[in-house]
Design a protein around this nucleic acid. Structure first.
Lengths: 265, 265
DNA sequence: TATTCCGATAGTGAC
DNA sequence: GTCACTATCGGAATGAG
């Protein structure tokens, strides 16, 4: 039945005034798309970017990625680029929240499920942790595993447009028979590739991975603080601008670098 | 491992002094067999009759029905007849308990599981209700369903001895591949053959069947009491010998008859 | 077909 | 590949000198 509202996103996408949606649902909207909170987040941060129904598309063409990719190529590409623009705004917002809540930022994924079960195209924008109480089943996890194949990264979809037309034709098929089995594959950590025999063990491991990341980033902050202190001592008349309890700016500057545990540079 | 004591019955059967078994385990014993309470009764009454290890049998020949039926035919038959004798004593005891606790008696089944999981031959003697909190799984139920085939009635086994030798040879094989699938068949009421989709529904239905039986038997008692009263009134100087609150004797006399709800004969 | 525990699997119903 | 609920199915452990 569709009574469990498999079409709720379509209803959102058809609203002439998205602002009337409750704030617990709607995060933001533009002329062309909506961003909503995923009602069952599978990562610490998890949003959906949804195209609003508008010319030249009808609701059926916007049903899912497969139906969109059957549309005129340039139109489809334009729509995806628009979603991409909005998704990147969401990404920035998430990164800002990461800093606020955790003091560092980590990877963010943007992509589609090959075989979505809820109708109307929706682009997942979620933090790369897959740590969430709503992550319960193998199919939940495998549907977001970044290397499993079921989760199709937005950047990959965009690259199909520039590839050989025959390749475009093939990949845009998105056959159920090819993607469905991926959800039943063995559980493996998306980060270290280790195999985990069941969901409780996987979830513990993912939490450990996140805790490890957390500790590493905290150590990074600490090293930055020390370096800052040293500089302050050297130029003794100067007070460090970062001598407070908000490490954000340290991390903004340092977060793209990889350092060994005793790196000093 | 056999550490989960799949061989506990063998240990009982080898005891030189069965009386040393705790009374919660042992119901009675003779020179040749023991009767124990089934630790996980699948009916209101459920006992096991177990042959003691004695010449000409060794423990391996008494492992199960299959191994017993490979022994010399007359020996095997004698052992089964001995078990049968003891089982009939148990049956009488159960019927007495039925009267004491429920005021009427109902059918009792005696038989073997085609493929037992605990070692050492054990004859199930249980009341025909299959109402018990320990009746939990489909395989539990199907293993006692009197028409499913997995539960082999003692009378059937005894009849094999008088049948054609080739029939004896065939039936006494008790191949796992033939009997195991019976446990996975759909659930159906052993009494009315109705199909039930799952164990909770089956259990409710079995309880209803038992309640119906209970009400029918109670009504039977009531009719007997009325008839008794009428007789007392007719021969007005006489007091009914059954004018008390124990309906047992009424039922002993009337229990083999079938009457319609308004039968007066 | 011993039980029990744990977890995966399957069907349903949901507004 | 919606969730939540119920029940089933499937493996492993089970004790113990």
């Amino acid at each position: 039945m569709s009574s469990a509202n498999m079409t709720i996103f379509r209803a959102y996408a058809q609203k002439s005034n998205p602002a009337s949606l409750p704030p617990s649902v709607l995060f933001s909207h533009s002329e062309t798309c909506l961003t909503v909170f995923d009602a069952f987040p599978k990562s610490i941060f998890h949003f959906l970017v949804i195209p609003r129904v508008r010319p030249p598309f009808n609701v059926y063409q916007l049903a899912n990625l497969r139906s969109l990719l059957k549309c005129e190529k340039n139109c489809a590409k334009e729509l995806l680029i628009d979603l991409s623009r909005e998704a990147n705004n969401v990404k920035k917002m998430i990164e800002s929240e990461m800093f606020k809540k955790y003091g560092f930022k980590w990877e963010i994924w943007m992509g589609f499920h090959a075989i979505p079960s809820m109708e109307h195209l929706h682009l997942h924008v979620l933090s790369a942790d897959l740590c969430s109480p709503r992550m319960k089943l193998k199919k939940h996890y495998n549907s977001f595993h970044p290397k499993r194949g079921f989760f199709i990264h937005l950047s990959d979809v965009l690259s199909w447009f520039d590839a050989d037309p025959s390749y475009y034709k093939t990949t845009s098929q998105l056959k159920k028979s090819e993607y469905e089995p991926l959800l039943k594959e063995d559980l493996s950590c998306w980060k270290c590739d280790r195999n985990l025999s069941n969901m409780p063990k996987l979830k513990s491991h993912l939490q450990e991975e996140f805790d490890k990341l957390f500790d590493q980033e905290k150590a990074k902050v600490e090293r930055e603080r020390k370096r800052s202190d040293d500089l302050a001592q050297t130029s003794s008349s100067q007070i460090s601008l970062n001598d407070d309890d908000s490490p954000q700016d340290e991390l903004v500057r340092g977060s793209d670098e990889e350092r060994g545990p005793h790196s000093e540079n």
